[in-house]
Every structure is written in C-alpha cells, then in structure tokens.
Design a protein around this nucleic acid. Sequence first.
DNA 1: CCTTGACCCTCCCCTTAGGGGAGGCGGTTT
DNA 2: AAACCGCCTCCCCTAAGGGGAGGGTCAAGG
Lengths: 268, 268
Amino acid sequence: MFYIGEFSKMGRTTVKTLHYYDRIGLLQPQEVDESTGYRLYSTRQLVDLHRIQALKQAGLSIDDIQSVFAGVDVKPILEQRQAEIVRELHKHEEQRARIAFLLSEEEKEFFMDYQATVKEIPSQIVYSKRMTVPNYKAYFDVIPAIGRAVMQANPDLKCATPEYCYIVNLDGEYKESDINIEFNEAVEEFGTEVDGITFKKTEPLEVVSVMHKGGYDGLPQAYAFAMDWLEKSGYAIADFTRESYIDGIWNKDDEDEWLTEVQIPIVQ
Amino acid sequence: MFYIGEFSKMGRTTVKTLHYYDRIGLLQPQEVDESTGYRLYSTRQLVDLHRIQALKQAGLSIDDIQSVFAGVDVKPILEQRQAEIVRELHKHEEQRARIAFLLSEEEKEFFMDYQATVKEIPSQIVYSKRMTVPNYKAYFDVIPAIGRAVMQANPDLKCATPEYCYIVNLDGEYKESDINIEFNEAVEEFGTEVDGITFKKTEPLEVVSVMHKGGYDGLPQAYAFAMDWLEKSGYAIADFTRESYIDGIWNKDDEDEWLTEVQIPIVQ
DNA sequence: CCTTGACCCTCCCCTTAGGGGAGGCGGTTT
DNA sequence: AAACCGCCTCCCCTAAGGGGAGGGTCAAGG
C-alpha cells in the first residue's frame, strides 16, 4: 500500500489528477485511513491507472473512459472518437494552410485590407433577373428599376432581413463592357413574376468571402486576393462569382465608406 | 445601424458571441442606446467581425486576435500558432493510430488484459550487474544475493522511492536458457562497488509500457502485444527490452497477483 | 388603447481535466 | 520544541462562449 505521493510517481501522474479521479469515481483508492483521511493505493490501482492512461493517450475523454470501465461497448465510442479525430485533423490542416498564407502575404500591402473567411450561405427565396449591361456603372441604374417593378406587382412582398442583394457574374472571365449578370434580391416569399423577373429558391452554398471597402474600381483587387487565397488553401471554384452590396451610393455619400462583399462558391 | 440580432445574421454569428466580444472589448458596438441599453452596430463593425472570423478560422485564440487588433507584430503570433498546430496534428495522428489498433484488437481475447502506454523514464542512479542465468526462474535466487552484497558494502544506501527494480534482456531474441541479463535497482546515490556490481546514471528514456498480471509464463504474450502495438503505431525499438518487477513471490503468495511491467525503449 | 409575440438587456451557472494556492492536520527529524 | 514535508479539504481559475431566468422594449394586430 502506498501513499498518494508515491503512487503518483509510480503511475507517472500528479496527486491532483488522482484526487480528481477519486472525486469523480473513476479510480478510487483501495482504502482510506479513517482517522487521517489519507488515501492508500495498491498495485491493483496501478493497473487501472495504466488502463486509464492508455485510453487517454488514444484521445478518449474521461467520460468515455468511465463508460469503458462501466462495461459499455467500446466499439461505438472508439468509432465516434475516430471520426472526431479525423475532423480535427482536417481542421488543423486547414488552419495550417491559412497561417501559411497569412505568413506569406504578411509583407504585402493588402494584408491589412483583405481577409478571407469561409461561410455558409443558407437556402433562400430570391427574385432574380438576367441581363447584359454595358458597364458596371450601369448596374445602379437598372437595379432600382427592377426593385420598383417587383414591388408594384407584389405590394406586400418584403425583403429578407438582413438584406441580401447581390449580382452573379455570368461571364466566366473579367469583362469591362457588355457584362452578363444576374441580379438577385432575397425576399420572404414567392411572388408574381413580371417583366422577366423570376422567383426561385437557392441551394445552400459554401463560399469564400472577402470584404471590399471603397469604390468599385478596387474590386478586381479583392477578386485577385480571393482567388490567390483559395488556390493556396486548396479549394476549387464551384460556380460563378458574386458581389453582395452592403453599403453604396444609395446610403453613403463618401465612396470610401462603400462596402461590398465578394463571394466565390467553393467545393471541398 | 442594426440591432444585435440582425447584425448577428449579417455576420453569421450568434448574439451570445457578440455579447462576449463586447464584454472583453474585442468588438464593441458603434453605439449603445442610453435609455434601453440596446447595442447598435454599423457595417464598420461588420468588417471588423469579418477580420475576427478570418483569424479565428486560422486557429488564433481570442487573446491573440486582440493582440493583432492592438497592433502587436503578427509574425511571432502566427509562427507560434503554426508550431502548435503541427504539434496538434502529430498528436491526432498518433491518436488515430491508437484507435485503429484498439478497433483491430477489439475482438481478440487479450483486449481487456493488455494496454500499451508511452511514458518517460527519467534519468536515475542505479546499481547494476550483468550475468548469465540458466533460466528465468533463477532470477529470484540471484537477485536477493546482489541486494545483500550491495547493502553490506553500503549500509546507508537507500533504494529510490518509488522502488524501481528491473532487468534488461541483453539477448536480442527470446531465449529460455543461458539468458544474458543486466539487473538494475534505482537508488538514491552512488555507492562503493563490490562483487562486479557497478553504479551508473541512466539516460532519460521513452518506452512503451505494458502491464502483465500473473505468473511469468504469460510474459511472452505481453511482449508480443507490445511489439504488435508498437509496430502498428509506427514506433521503432531503440534498445534492449526491460522487465520491471512490481509484485512477485517476495510479497504475494498468489501467483495471479504478481505484477510485472514490460518496457520497450522506442524512438519517434 | 391594449395585448401579444419577438427582441433585447443583465445576471448567474455550466462546460474539460485538472492546476494553484490557502489553511490546517499528521508524522518525522533535528 | 521547532521545522519540514506530505496529506487533507475547500475555493477559485482556465477558453469561448451556451443555456436559461427574470425583466424591460419594440412593432403589429385587434
């Protein structure tokens, strides 16, 4: 029989850990001295402790280890933990790629201006219209007209909150004139279709998102940053790119205050 | 300006998280309504939130993100986090191998009897003697004699606590007769050497450890288990194997109560 | 004008696997 | 007798929020 200090050295653990295991009932001493309260351990506990340590080194939680000791079937526990470890590995691989990217970009001037995040766009109802416009400045002439047409046909229709208004670039490449776009605005429900405007329910989507602050002349840089990021992070482009307009001429006078989100659908 | 609920949807986060960021000062609302206490956010906060999310997705802690926002040089932070991610990746690779082993061994009968752990053996002072014995039963005739000889020459010498008494198998293979062994006992300090017994300081060592309960006839199974485990876990054997005697004929009458630890030094 | 349901606030407790330390008792050594 | 070491219990702490209670606020419907 050993006092806790000696036993902790035999088992290469700490006294605090043994106190904790005793408290939660995972590993209790063979005997407790009635008068002093001193815990007394035997080599039988050493075997149990060894078993605990083996399972801990395999990544099982204390809760799981207690289940194993209680005789619960280990297979589902192990498989669940295995799946979680694989998820952790993927997460850390991704983090490694992101940090490598940040370190590589650190010296460049746009490090402080652009960041990329991955986010989910949930399924939504939108009204949308495809068109060809002569240049991007024309967007904001045609967009309000679409809004008015929809609202006239559907007086009770409300935009989604938060607002989500975006265009999809239907050209596979960058163009400065005769741009094919699809304008979209998220709304609360389906409505009647007028003037080439259709309603649809979008699929949920995973995108990499880059925020662009300032006028639209700078948008190509945001695209370039996003493309660079996603190539270095091992993602592939899944669909046409999008721009979501958050702040612009309609609510901010100062062009530097405009805010646009570039979204690029990704896979894997 | 947006209420917290709408802002949380725009930023794809939760109200609780925004409360938390406000409390710790990481991201504070643009304005707080004096009379109601309602938080009001603007799109400027949306950009900051985006930045927080990008750094979080790269695996930085909230503390680190606060440092980044405070203008601390990011490079050391990123490098430190990178190193930690690599450690995590290794740890999880190891856990994956262990769980795969447990799942593969699960059906076999010794799953419940043997577990392997990796542990560090610290540097120690031992006295040791090499010898050849006819068979393993002879160990326990010669060992007490060595102990007596040492104690006679060094009356004040004390064994280490906890006791650590082991033999090293100097044969590279399993043998049943004419076994070359080195007997070792950890002590508190160096002493005078008699009768072929030498004192030395051991190097710290990493071993895989398997506990064997019962008589010594079963030891080969413990070795087999350990060898199997370490092959499947990707470790290589670094040195001769060891047996550490914890309980045996000297303190337990019932052979089933004997306890021996098989230790195999490993690299990587 | 009143009510209802949605939204917001603060405050408190909870999560893992123990770590750190205070205050006090037991046993041994000088 | 004093010092020191080992042991005990009790209490607070971790990271990043989550869950819920209790209570005030907002906008719309009857």
